[in-house]
Computed example of a mutant assay.
Amino acid sequence: MSRHTVANIVKVTLAIAFFIFMPFIVPILGIVKKNWKVIAEGVLYSVLFVAALSIDAESPLSTLSSFVGLGSIVVSAVRFYMLRDLWLSRKAKGTGRNATSQPNTAWPAASHPSAVAAPVTPSTEHLSQSLAWVATQAKQNKHHLPADAYVSVLEICQTLDAVVDAETRQPLGDPQFEYELTATVREYLPAVVRGYLAIPPSMVENRQANGRTANEELVEQLQLLARQAETLHASRHRQTSMDLSNTGNFLRERFGHQQGGFDFGIK
């Protein structure tokens, strides 16, 4: 999949041109994509930016406000780049010179029966590899991880692997779902496991600046990831059930009125 398209080049150019307004661009992206997390995050950047601008230049807080304003721009720009899957479209690379990508095709409406094209399955090999890496790290460091955390990591991998397997067989074609799944599998879960394993075993019970130990942080973060994995699993299979119902409606509308069996014109 490639992002080198004219539309994407224009989007990147505009993003660079309006870099200073990035704290306002992030919430706009969230509104367009109907992503409440991105909206809330963008609103925070916007509030900090506006608050920094509202401080008088002669105020004792002017220096601090300058850092806050500049920081809100930089952080929002970084987050805008991390959310690139939401605003940079992908173009499938064909095997021939004039090859074009095929969209994910659902069952046709009963009023317009037509041939059903097989959907193009996006590559999910990289997701499976990421999950395999996490599971391998957990097994190799079983005695380093807390017992509950070790079990939780393997359960999360198992749940996400089921979602990846379902996406491999029949992709939903939902960009938001694909973004959440990819981010969870390739970024969030590996980062938590990698970050904990980087801490020497003798320091995992030391209190950090926030008053928590590394073990406590690991348990809480794995709980959050487990809920996210269950959400993705439920969302994926809820959509699968809806697709099956749509298929049934199509078949009933197409063939349900026939009597004495189906007549396909075969003699």
Rank of each mutant, 00 (worst) to 15 (best):
M1R: 13
S2L: 01
S2Q: 08
R3A: 03
R3L: 02
H4N: 03
T5P: 02
V6C: 01
V6I: 10
I9M: 08
I9F: 11
K11F: 03
T13I: 09
A15H: 04
A15F: 11
A17Q: 00
I20N: 11
V26D: 10
V26T: 11
L29S: 07
K33R: 13
N35F: 03
W36P: 01
E41C: 12
E41M: 08
L44R: 09
Y45K: 01
V47W: 05
F49S: 09
L61N: 10
T63C: 00
V68R: 13
L70C: 05
V74S: 10
V74H: 09
V78Q: 03
F80V: 02
W87H: 08
W87G: 07
L88K: 05
R90G: 10
R90K: 14
K93Q: 11
K93G: 01
T95Y: 05
N98M: 04
P103D: 06
N104T: 08
A110G: 02
A110P: 02
V116C: 13
P119S: 08
T121Y: 06
P122V: 03
H126S: 12
S130P: 06
S130L: 00
W133G: 07
W133V: 08
A138P: 06
A138H: 06
K139G: 10
K139T: 15
N141E: 09
H144Q: 14
L145S: 04
L145D: 06
D148A: 13
E155F: 07
E155P: 01
A162E: 15
V163T: 04
V163P: 02
V164R: 08
E167L: 03
T168K: 09
Q170A: 12
D174G: 05
Q176H: 11
E178S: 12
R186K: 13
E187L: 11
L189F: 07
L189W: 08
P190R: 01
V192W: 04
R194D: 15
Y196C: 04
A198S: 15
A198R: 14
I199N: 12
I199H: 10
I199S: 09
P201Q: 09
M203V: 01
A209F: 10
N210V: 05
A214L: 00
A214M: 06
N215F: 02
N215A: 11
N215C: 07
E217Y: 12
L218E: 11
V219G: 08
L222P: 09
L222G: 02
L224A: 06
L224C: 02
A226Y: 13
A229T: 06
E230N: 14
L232P: 04
M242Y: 04
D243H: 06
L244R: 14
L244N: 11
S245M: 09
S245P: 00
N249A: 04
F250K: 03
F250G: 03
L251Y: 14
R252I: 05
G256W: 03
G256N: 02
G256P: 05
H257Y: 10
Q258P: 11
Q258E: 15
